[in-house]
Write a protein that binds this DNA or RNA. Sequence first.
DNA 1: CGATACATTGAGGTTTATCAATTTGTGTGG
DNA 2: CCACACAAATTGATAAACCTCAATGTATCG
Lengths: 250, 250
Amino acid sequence: MSQFKTPVAVPLAPALPRKKQGVSPCAACEVRHLAVCSALETDDLEELDSILTHKGLSAGDTLFDEGEPATHVYNLTTGCLKLYKLLPDGRRQVTGFLFAGDFVGLANSEDYIYSAEAVSDVNLCSFEKHKIDKLMNSHLSLEKRLLGMARFELAEAQEQILLLGRKTAKERIASFILMLSERAQRRGEPDNPVEFPMNRNDIGDYLGLTTETVSRTITRLRKSGAISLDSDRSIVINERDNLVDIAEGF
Amino acid sequence: MSQFKTPVAVPLAPALPRKKQGVSPCAACEVRHLAVCSALETDDLEELDSILTHKGLSAGDTLFDEGEPATHVYNLTTGCLKLYKLLPDGRRQVTGFLFAGDFVGLANSEDYIYSAEAVSDVNLCSFEKHKIDKLMNSHLSLEKRLLGMARFELAEAQEQILLLGRKTAKERIASFILMLSERAQRRGEPDNPVEFPMNRNDIGDYLGLTTETVSRTITRLRKSGAISLDSDRSIVINERDNLVDIAEGF
DNA sequence: CGATACATTGAGGTTTATCAATTTGTGTGG
DNA sequence: CCACACAAATTGATAAACCTCAATGTATCG
C-alpha cells in the first residue's frame, strides 16, 4: 500500500542531540497548543520530551492493527491518519480521520480497538503507554486534559452516530465537507477551499456509503452550485449557509 | 406521554433524615459498584451523599432536552433511560440506552448535546455539575474513574458507528440483542431471556431502521430458530454462538 | 507516452423505507 | 370476568435510496 513518494516523512520537531539543554524541542512544537501537550507548563516539557520518540510514516503505511496489544499512544504532528474497523468479509468502517494535533489511542484499553493507517505522509510523537500513565500521576493537568479530550470525542462520535443512522447521502456529504472545513480552521489553516487528503473510497467508508454514491452526490452538490471543485481533493464552498442547511436536514 | 402506572417511582436509597449518622445512604446503594461512586472510599460517601438529590421519573417523562444548559449530571439507579438527537424534520436518532449504574452527562459540556427521556420508570441520583467538579478536585480517584468511563463509552460509540455504517438490518438486530444481554449480565441480572424495556420504534431509532424493519427482522430471526419470543419485550436466545456470528457479519 | 490508480457515469438490482391494513396485547370500566 | 378502547406490533404491497457491476474518463508518475 505504501507509496513512498518521499522515502520517510520528515519529523516536524526532529530529535535533537540529547545534550542537557535548557530548552525542550517540545517547546518549539508548532502543534503543541492543539495537542495533549498543551496541558503541561513549558517547564515540564523537557520531561515530556524525554519520554517521546518521533516517528514518520509514508502514505499507506500502517501504524497499528486492531487487536494488537495497545502499547503506545501517539500525537499527530503533521499529515492525516485514518482509523478503521473491519468486518470478517472485508466491509470497512472508517471511525475517524485524524489531523495535526489530534491524539491517537484515547479509546483503546488492553488492545487497539481499531487499525490506524496513514492517509498522507505523517509525523507522530510516540509515547509508551506506561510512561504516559506515570506522567499522568505526577501531572494532574494531563489527566484533566485527557478527560476533556475524551468528552469532546464522545460528543463528536454522537454526531457521527446521528449522521450514520438518520442522514441521507446528500446530508452526509454536506456534513463531511463542513466538518473538514471547521477542523482546518481550528488548526489555523484556511477553511475554504477544503483540502481532502483522503480518496473517495475512504470518504465512503467513513460516511457509510460507496465510492460511487460519494462521487454522484458530490457531483449533484456541484451542479446545484453549493460547491465547486478545484480538484478532486480540493472543494470550494460557494454557499456555506446553504450547505449548513443541507447538512442539518432542513 | 407519562403513563403514571405508579404515581412516582420510589427511590432506591430514599433520602433519610439528615441526622449526623455515621453511615451514608450511598453506602447501602445497590448499584454503587457499577457507578461512578465506586471510585470513592466508603469514608468519602457521606460527602457524596451530601451533594446529591434523588429524583424519580415515570416512563415517558423528559429528564432534559438537547440544547438546555447542562447544569446537572445523573447516575441511574433503576430503570431505563434513552438519549436521543433530533433533526429539524423530526427524524430521531437514539444515541444510547442507559441502565442501572450508568452515568448521564459525560459528553455534555455547556449545553446538553442530546435529550434524555425515561423509557421505564426511573430513579436517579442528581448532582449539580459545579459540585461534582469541586469534588473531583479533592478526590482524584473520581476523575480517573470518569476518564475510564469516557474511554469505555468511546469504544462503545465506535462499535455503534461500525454497526450503523456497515451492518445489515439482521446484523444490527443480532448485535442489539447480544448487547442488551451482555449489559444485563454486567449488572448482575440474567443474560437470558433478554428483557427489552423499550418499544420497537425506539429500537429502530437506535439502530437506524424503521419500526417495520425491526419487526420483520426479529420475525425472521425467530423463524430461523436463533431466538424465541416470550413476549414482545422478552427474547430468548436459543443459539448464542449463531447470533454472535450473525452480529459480527460471518 | 503509456501504465496505473482514482473518479465519474450508467444500467439494473437489492435492501430498506413508506404507506396502509390487520393483529395482538393491555388496561379500563361496566 | 368480559367487552371495549387504545397503543403497539406485525404483515403486505409498493416505492425510493443506495448498492453492485461495468464501462469510460481523467490525472499522475515514472
